[in-house]
Write a protein that binds this DNA or RNA. Sequence first.
DNA 1: TGAACTGTATCAATAAATGTTACAAAATAA
DNA 2: TTATTTTGTAACATTTATTGATACAGTTCA
Lengths: 139, 139
Amino acid sequence: MAANSQFATAVHVLTILAKNNKERVKSDYIAGSVNTNPVVIRRLLSSLQEANLVESQVGVAGGTFLAKRPKDIRLSEIYKAVSCGEVFALHPNKPDENCPVGKNIAAILCELQKEIDKTVEEKLNQYTLRDLIEKIEEN
Amino acid sequence: MAANSQFATAVHVLTILAKNNKERVKSDYIAGSVNTNPVVIRRLLSSLQEANLVESQVGVAGGTFLAKRPKDIRLSEIYKAVSCGEVFALHPNKPDENCPVGKNIAAILCELQKEIDKTVEEKLNQYTLRDLIEKIEEN
DNA sequence: TGAACTGTATCAATAAATGTTACAAAATAA
DNA sequence: TTATTTTGTAACATTTATTGATACAGTTCA
């Protein structure tokens, strides 16, 4: 499949919204910057709205704007809003129950998976959207 | 696509090899425990062999065994041997160069991506295969 | 009332991963 | 030396996650 790039796209979209302050931005405009279809953007905005990161207005002169200030949006919130949150996947098939290893490995891997995911989340929690915007402006 | 479960499978496979000490284990047997096709296992073993984690012998009475002791195999080595090593993907399409955000976002995201990947690797470096095996035996 | 939006359902296209088949090459044992 | 067993790998099929596209109902506002 295509690799999941929703987190990267979400950061891009939120940065655009931040730059436009409290103005309503149209999905068409955002799609132009991201270079994709407006529906893809609206779908993503839907997830971000559910996480209370953005607000949208329908109708003429509608569009989307940030629901919080960039300094109050942590990257971990963005990550949680759009990802399934798993760094590596578990086996697609159930291991053989008759094998002593197969029988017990799944639980151990699941535990490890959670620990790694938590590590990523903690790291992303150290940055806010404002931190990223400042880096962009340094260029 | 199907989610990449190679790391989880690799850990499973290496645990089986560890349990069988220095005996040669056949891909058919491993495939039984993992519940997949032997060729999938041989393909994975090929990557692990390249990373010097296992050795294989072809022919009658052939099979695979660990190239190092479990306490000398760090989970980070396994991860590097089988993954592309990216927690989240960048945009599939190139952002619009005319947009001030689109123009600069890729570099920032790439930097962030590397930092997150490094965080995961460091965490996985804290554990050895033996640590996992001990956990399994506690059950 | 008409125009310009979002929201969302549905389907098509793409791409990555796994699963399968086939067979050459190697090792061993009889 | 021949038959057997096993790895290694190429080639292709299948599955599934993601993105992209089309269509249209529902809102808002002039």
